Amino acid sequence: MNHPPRRVATAAAVLLTAAAVLLTGCSSGSDGKGTAAKNAPAPSASASVPAPDPGSDSAEPTAPTDPASDAVPSGPKVPEAELTPVTGSFTKKEKAYLSGRVPRGTDPAAVLQLGQETCDRIARVAEVDKDAAIGGIITGQIGGAKGAVTHLCPDQEDILAAAATGFADGSYTVGTKAKAGSVVVPGTYRALTPTKDCTWTAGTKTGTAHKVTITAGTRTFDSRGCFAWAREGR
């Protein structure tokens, strides 16, 4: 099933507002951090919260990421016993975050700083709009959330848990979690930061409401302009 392209202007506006907040107040403010991150090189601009460009077709949804995943670059990693900063020391939770995550030849303090800034982004975007933070994790616009939240900012676990129930705009096969390849399971979902052009098709039923119940037996689900969906009553 195909729908005409829709631009996620509303979602872009929300995330751009959130990004502005980040730029004015972003820091490695996670609690319990060691001194290492202070000496780490600043991350690249790609580490900031990206937002779709409402003026281009690139704002159209792409293949969603699994919000429960936390991809780590492939290749040899620095052994945990060798995870030491140039100065200072890592706390126990920082070392747990870095374990198996630092590629050989990479400063572990820089990797830690990125994790801390992921926590900061989640917290600051959530302060502006909690739905935007949840949707940002679901769509992959806020990457690396699982490891960062688990080890560095467990106070954001409610955001991560909400994201784990959701999915981004796109076309899906509906099934059970145990069924390989199924992403969407039956249930009631709420659109996060949708545009006025939010449309969806569940099986043979279509609609524009920002809440949809995908019933058991529904085989496919497709949405455009809704940005992301989070399950209610989880």
Rank of each mutant, 00 (worst) to 15 (best):
T193M: 14
S48E: 08
W229K: 12
L160I: 07
A228C: 05
G29M: 08
T150V: 13
A13L: 15
L16R: 15
V72I: 15
T188A: 00
G181M: 09
H3M: 15
T208I: 08
M1V: 11
G207M: 12
A168G: 03
G135Y: 03
D107W: 00
Q141P: 02
V212L: 10
D66V: 12
T106H: 09
P64K: 01
R234D: 09
V212S: 10
G115A: 09
A18C: 03
K93P: 05
V111T: 15
G203S: 13
T220W: 11
A230Y: 00
A42V: 06
A168L: 01
L15D: 04
G34P: 06
T193S: 14
T118E: 01
D197L: 11
T195P: 05
W229Q: 10
F167G: 12
T118I: 07
A163I: 00
G144W: 05
S56T: 15
K179W: 00
P108W: 06
L160V: 11
A168N: 05
A202T: 06
K77E: 07
A180D: 10
L23R: 15
T91S: 15
D155F: 06
K38G: 14
V78N: 01
S27E: 07
E82C: 00
G140S: 04
A42I: 04
K146V: 15
G187F: 05
T87W: 03
G105R: 02
I142V: 10
T35G: 14
T24E: 13
